[in-house]
Amino acid sequence: MPRILKQPLLWFCLIASVLFAADSWLSVSRIEIYVSAALRERLGLLWETQTGMIASKNELDSLVQNWIEEEVLFQEALRLGLDQEDSIVRRRMVQKLNFIAESEPVAVPETRVLEDFYSRNLQDYTLPRRYSMRQLYFQTSPDAQSALAAIDRGESAAGLGESSMLSGSYAYRSSFDLNATFGSGFAGQLQNLSANSWHGPLKSSFGYHLVLITGIHEQEVTPLRAISAQVLKDYRQSGQDSARQRYLANLLRKYEVVVEQQ
């Protein structure tokens, strides 16, 4: 045996080192609670928001102490698996992950993808029959009739009609829109009127109207190029779901799902 191994001091050192190493290893296994300067600042701000007053040094210390206690309890609750039996915690965590999944930026889709989405949702981009028209308002039917006679004699319509909160012209209004504006039953009277000449009187909830239809726009599908921004928006909106689904599909590959047979 070499001399050196007979030195008591060496044995002392080795044993001490082992003891220190053991102690340090045990220390590592303790969970550390880390109170950062940022956290301290955040707790102070929160206090300020809730109370309207700046936290004093003592208040801040006590906020930190409370936080530490809460954190210890939280860690212990996690260790005991309490989070796994609580449907609220479960739902909240799922919700947060969904938000993260949905916040993944949706790539600008290829034209082909957008066209496909558009044609699959064509009903959303189909407009009903609409009218563009000018209207003159009268409280009584005889006044409306004499104004129509004046127009037929060649008088300008511009100076005729009574002032009202109604507009003098409406563009691209569906029957539903017109009934909401003039009262139900109004739009039906436009059905068989020819465009570009004055007709009336038409009855509404407000009184009587002379109407000049300047355009009849039959039910039509809005071309994609005219509505691409809307289609993109809708695609992205629906993309929230598919981003989530893509995310979920990726996750599912990591899991083996076994369903017990009845």
């Binding site: 080795l14 001490a16 080192s17 102690d23 550390e32 880390y34 936080w67 860690q75």
Partner: peptide
């Protein structure tokens, strides 16, 4: 050797803990 032990002990506590879950 004492120093080694001591620094290895204290070194851990200076490292930002992996578990700063808070």
């Amino acid at each position: 050797s004492m120093l080694l032990v001591v620094t290895s002990c204290s070194g851990d506590s200076n490292t930002p803990a992996s578990n700063n879950a808070g």
